Simulated assay, not measured.
Amino acid sequence: MKNLLLKQVGRADFERLEPHLKTTAFAQHSVLFETDQKIKHVYFPIGAVVSLVVTLSTGEMVEAAMVGSDGVVGASAALDGRVAVCRGIVQLDGDIIVCDIDALKSAALQSPNLLSLLIRHEQAVYAQAQQSAACFATHMVEARLCRWLLRARDLSEGDTLNFTQEYLAEMLGVRRTSVTVVAHTLQAAGLIKYARGKIQILDADGLRESACECYGTVKLHYERLLNGRRD
């Protein structure tokens, strides 16, 4: 599985980056960077899925965005952001192409096309974070959980997801009991099967019917990005 964003990079730009790219395996829950930490590397997932989460003083975490093989993590730092505004944590284990931040910045400054691609990607991540904020404020837990599972499924390209109920509750910003009730409801409806920290999606179409509009909206943002559309 390849990173779809890197596929959009022109040949000359990729040749500049290639010597600085290294594929590394990351375990689940690995922390790529912490809030307010200086970012030294940029991450292009090719198997792993990464969550960008906001941490509160109480220790609670809420996910703002999810990035996988359709994107990059830390690109804003290469565009001179430098300091992380949230925590980057590996949600699902797998491979990530790691790039030195200065190498990406240098390549972007030499290429308007690469710079534009990175800016449009950061806009897509920002749009996803905005959508998440609206989703938390207005949509029911069941619809939000369905949306979240579908996004994770798309990025992992698999129907089996290794998530505990505690982790799902953290990412959705709800109590574990709320996730438990919804998970039982979805399992009873034949949409998922849950056991021992694993969720198997049995009926993706059924999940889409139960998910909120945010799933389709975020998906459209990334389709436009990867197709080079600006409309």
Rank of each mutant, 00 (worst) to 15 (best):
L79Y: 04
R229N: 04
V179E: 07
S106Q: 11
N113M: 08
A169S: 15
C135V: 04
R229I: 06
L117M: 09
D95Q: 05
A64T: 13
A189V: 09
F136G: 09
P45V: 01
L92W: 01
L202E: 15
A188K: 14
L220E: 15
I201Y: 02
R147F: 03
V67W: 00
K40Y: 09
Q123W: 11
A84P: 02
V73T: 09
L168P: 00
R196E: 15
W148G: 03
Y194G: 09
L220G: 10
T185L: 08
V53I: 08
V179H: 03
L109V: 13
A169Y: 12
V53Q: 07
R82H: 05
A133N: 05
R175G: 14
R175T: 14
R208S: 06
C212N: 14
T35A: 11
D80G: 02
K7A: 10
A195L: 13
S156V: 07
E142A: 15
G88N: 06
I89Y: 01
S156P: 03
C99I: 13
S57F: 13
A27C: 04
H121F: 13
Y194Q: 14
L79C: 03
L225D: 01
V73L: 05
M66Y: 07
P112N: 04
L145W: 02
E142Q: 15
K22H: 06
V181K: 15
A129Y: 02
T55L: 08
R82M: 05
P45G: 00
L6K: 09
V49P: 01
G216W: 02
E60T: 12
V174F: 00
G173F: 10
L150C: 07
V62N: 11
Q131Y: 02
L117I: 09
A137I: 06
H29D: 14
D231M: 03
V141I: 14
F136E: 10
K7N: 15
I199N: 04
T160M: 07
E213R: 12
M140T: 10
T160D: 05
F26V: 11
H221G: 01
I101Y: 03
V179M: 03
I97T: 15
L117S: 07
G71I: 06
L56D: 11
E63L: 08
T23S: 10
G59D: 07
E142N: 12
S116C: 05
D102L: 12
A152Y: 07
T164L: 03
Q130C: 09
V54Q: 15
T35C: 08
Y126C: 07
K40C: 07
Q28K: 15
S76R: 10
M171Q: 12
V50T: 00
M61P: 00
G228R: 06
T55M: 09
E18M: 05
L79K: 04
S57Y: 11
L109H: 15
Y194P: 04
V218P: 01
I201V: 14
S57T: 14
D93C: 08
E170I: 08
R224D: 08
R175Y: 07
A78S: 10
K40I: 05
T23H: 06
L226K: 08
D95L: 03
L117D: 06
L118Q: 03
S106T: 12
T185I: 04
V181A: 13
V67H: 00
L186Y: 00
G81F: 04
K22C: 02
C146G: 08
V53F: 01
I119T: 13
G74L: 10
G228F: 04
T35W: 05
I97F: 08
L186F: 00
G206S: 13
S116N: 12
A134P: 00
Q128K: 04
